[in-house]
């Protein structure tokens, strides 16, 4: 729960950061796009049945670690991008507690899987 909240706050911070830290250009546009997406997936991942979408923020964090060199960020935007990217990845890798069982989860819908009658143990639905 806390890890999802932390990433949602980081996403909202990315939306505000260009104004607060005073940077513009491609870095500003990038952070205003990545921020809402990160906050949205962090929020959706709060619920156990959709916990797996937390991994989207691993990808977004990875992009934030690369973006300063691809987009040519200013120093303040670079530091912000690296710190936020690393934190996003770290929090997204926290699985948290999953107490409910979901009958095999989302992967049970794949053609190669069968929907089980009983799911043996708890686990993050995938």
């Amino acid at each position: 729960m806390w890890a999802r909240i932390a990433n949602a706050v980081l996403g909202i911070w990315l939306m505000a950061a260009p104004a607060v830290l005073g940077y513009g250009g491609a870095a500003r546009t990038n952070d205003r796009i990545v921020g809402p997406i990160a906050a949205a997936f962090a929020t959706i991942a709060i619920w156990e049945v959709t916990r797996s979408v937390r991994f989207v923020n691993v990808a977004l964090g990875g992009w934030l670690l690369l973006a300063p060199w691809i987009l040519g960020h200013a120093p303040a935007a670079t530091v912000n991008s690296l710190v936020v990217g690393a934190l996003l990845i770290g929090f997204a890798l926290v699985r948290g507690t999953v107490e409910q069982r979901f009958g095999g989860g989302w992967s049970a819908l794949l053609p190669s899987h069968t929907v089980p009658e009983e799911h043996p143990a708890g686990g993050e639905p995938r």
Binding site: T43, I44, G104, L109, V115, P125
Partner: peptide, 19 residues
């Protein structure tokens, strides 16, 4: 966005049921 997570469990249960 806050509605998506809590709505998806029921959605999954129905899809599993049909399958």
């Amino acid at each position: 966005v806050a509605m998506i997570g809590p709505a998806m469990d029921e959605f999954l249960a129905s899809l599993q049921w049909v399958k």
